[in-house]
Design a protein around this nucleic acid. Structure first.
Lengths: 204, 204
DNA sequence: TAACACCTAGGTGAAATTACCCAAGTCGAT
DNA sequence: ATCGACTTGGGTAATTTCACCTAGGTGTTA
């Protein structure tokens, strides 16, 4: 379960990028460097995943704070630790307000940065876990009889066509019920639905 | 969990069909009648599912024993209870040998038939459950590191593309690993894989 | 009566899965 | 050094899912 941590480093200063990635590597933490925020965003678009982002605040083009805003608006839930060489209180406040995980002023101890990164990742994980579990019974209870019926068959691995044959309704209708179930339970795919359904079963 | 039982009734004698379906209905057991085996088979082809088949032995065209053989050759694992008005020992032996669940001679008590059907369903369920559980640890252990890696990500709900991005391999390769995992674990779809993986996790 | 929720089912279009096929490279063992 | 297992990745095609949409029928409730 102790999957490796993958960090995105964003800084227009190559020297900082190199130095930080070297440090992270020495701490057995994988990192990928980007010299600008848009480059990082394009990596995200290619389904690359990162557990945490460490970004400079002041960069030509898109600033670190802009990046935070952009990710929030995309509903990308990756913690961002901002660092700066010209830190001031106002900027720090603005950064935290828009949702940055932390704001560190240079010069800083590298171990301080790593600690902040670790804390941010842990916090995000716990929040996601809490979100997933929250009101699980209530969410299952909110399903109608038909929806629960469809869900149980879907969770047991039947296709929409097979479920339709069993319940004697069209596969299309099954599809609709299924979509409702997904939305109400808050599952993004069948795998998640199965996990949540099994958790619920075990609890009740 | 006490899902309703669905029975297929096959007999060329409409009177028998009506009488039995009436009895089953009175016992809160759903049944569908077919006047010939091929009609039943075509319903199966349309993804209809039955927990048990109750079929006459002697019918024009395909006999009850023929039906048993046909289903075995198709690997359809539904128990079949055969009934006959002209039962003889040889036929009974032949029926059981090819894999019929039971063989009942007319005249019979309807409750006797239902008991036989229930027993057959129960036996099949237990066998299927045992098959599913058998050597689960061994099957998971037989996975290579890469396959287990792919499996864990797949089970957590990631698409092949996302898994590929994480492991830095092409989605196509992920697809191949996934197919191997499915075969080795013996899961027919993601839902089953998730269930088995969760069972395994809980046990270990 | 009107609003609302639910079940039903169809359409479109994009994305993903599944099931096959194939080949090339690595690596360890016989 | 050939064999087998594993990893990698490409192709093709069928099927399925997913995300939208519309829309009629039913039943309940304000």
């Amino acid at each position: 379960m102790a999957q490796p941590i993958q960090i995105a480093l964003i800084d227009d200063d190559e020297a900082v990028l190199d130095s930080l990635s070297l440090y992270f590597a020495s701490q057995k933490v994988a990192s990928t460097g980007f010299s600008a925020a848009p480059q990082f965003l394009s990596a995200l678009g290619q389904d690359k995943r990162f557990d945490c982002i460490v970004s400079d605040v002041r960069m030509p083009g898109m600033s670190g704070i802009d990046l935070v805003r952009e990710l929030k608006s995309r509903n990308v839930d990756v913690p961002i630790v901002l660092i700066t060489g010209h830190g001031d209180v106002d900027m720090a406040v603005a950064a935290i307000k828009v949702g940055a995980a932390d704001f560190i002023e240079k010069p800083f101890d590298e171990s301080r940065l790593l600690a902040s990164v670790r804390a941010a990742i842990e916090e995000t994980r716990q929040r996601e876990n809490a979100d997933e579990q929250k009101d699980l019974p209530a969410r299952f209870a909110s399903l109608t009889a038909r929806q629960r019926q469809v869900m149980e068959l879907a969770v047991s691995g039947l296709s929409n066509k097979e479920i339709g044959a069993r319940l004697d309704i069209s596969p299309k209708t099954v599809e609709n019920h299924r979509a409702w179930v997904m939305e109400r339970i808050g599952a993004r795919n069948i795998a998640e639905l199965v996990r949540l359904a099994m958790k619920y079963d075990r609890r009740s």
